[in-house]
Design a protein around this nucleic acid. Structure first.
Lengths: 199, 199
DNA sequence: GACGAACGTCAACACTTGTTGGCCTACAGA
DNA sequence: TCTGTAGGCCAACAAGTGTTGACGTTCGTC
């Protein structure tokens, strides 16, 4: 179905089109918000459409179906910066800092985590991000390739655990922590997972 | 399976009831399984009833409504043992060990985490467990009452992050870790969150 | 044996969901 | 000017949801 193509890349160029990208972006923004707060199932297309002030059928025309909408809403790469030139002992701190900035920048990652908890596709997407963003960093710091997956997994467990308790479950003490406090506490943990000799 | 009359499980009043607890327990078991794998919304009462080989209306009769069923399915206290008599330096290790045993014992906690990610009630229940099980342990180890919530929150972030990546998102490297490896890696982290001077 | 209560089933209700097709409107190019 | 195309809305569909009530069936107790 669909394959209606329309314009593939009209998000930025729209030479003489009608005013279209506006509502497309409105839909995406509303979708991200709903997915982030409600998860996949409870974020209904009707609610998203109402938030974007358009008809539910427009969502279908633009994004095919709900899965397509979700895929478009979370299609974003977090672009971790190149940490290759940092001293090895500072990678842990840089990782936490950037991770926090990413999560507080927009709601895409919260949506992704919330959906990943109940949706297989979401979980696999999360795995993909982990593999393409976290693992490469670990590779640079850890000389033994055999230990890379485990160390990366440990880092992910602490980072995602923080995101879970702070942005999803909203444990008050974790929400109350200042960003610098989080960095101060978590940086040594990650540094150890990255570079300490395997216990 | 007659169980004769000695089943004290039927929650209270009827001393000489009919054989009822059987299906009640079957429903609860099926519900835990479904909630753990599908989350709250996608775990339908019809599917749970089919798993338990009974009619959906029985679920309603026994547990009132879906919320009641969920509450009953996750109504379990994890009974962390008394760690008060342990040396302070070993509390971290004991915490991780027991946490792992709890999660692998049954699916209640996985269900709770999965639901908590998208359901407000589930999230609050998770907070309750955290407050009643984790915080008391931290209180015994940390002398400064003002630091207790933050330290407990940090512990929860690492522990729940491990559960998330291992039992919910199922990151392959984290799933592959042996239990002793997890203990070896996480125990120092928790120990530091518990007793190290605040950074 | 008779009675009543608990166990269990069936069919249906009211509602929400994702999804679809038809219709109207506005603008660009001829 | 006319026309085609895209933007947009409306009403409706089929499927699935939680939930309810009526009806039959079994068993303990009198």
């Amino acid at each position: 179905m669909n394959a209606s193509n329309s314009s593939p890349t009209d998000s930025g160029s729209g030479p003489a089109r009608r005013r279209s990208g506006t509502t497309r972006d409105a839909i995406l923004t509303a979708a991200r918000e709903r997915f982030a707060t409600d998860g996949y199932e409870r974020a209904t297309i009707r609610a998203i459409a109402k938030d974007a002030n358009i008809d539910p059928s427009m969502v279908m025309r633009y994004y095919g179906n709900k899965e397509g909408l979700f895929a478009a809403a979370v299609a974003v790469d977090l672009k971790l910066p190149d940490l290759g030139d940092l001293p090895r002992q500072e990678v842990g701190r840089a990782l936490v800092t950037h991770f926090l900035a990413m999560w507080e920048q927009n709601e895409v990652l919260t949506a992704l985590l919330r959906v990943g908890a109940t949706n297989q596709d979401g979980a696999e997407r999360m795995q993909g991000i982990f593999r393409e963003e976290v693992v490469p960093i670990v590779v640079r710091v850890c000389p033994d390739p055999e230990q890379v997956p485990a160390r990366a997994g440990l880092c992910a467990s602490q980072l995602l655990g923080l995101a879970l308790t702070r942005y999803v479950l909203r444990f008050p003490p974790v929400v109350a922590l200042a960003r610098e406090e989080i960095v101060a506490w978590l940086a040594p943990t990650l540094q150890r997972y990255l570079t300490a000799p395997s216990p």
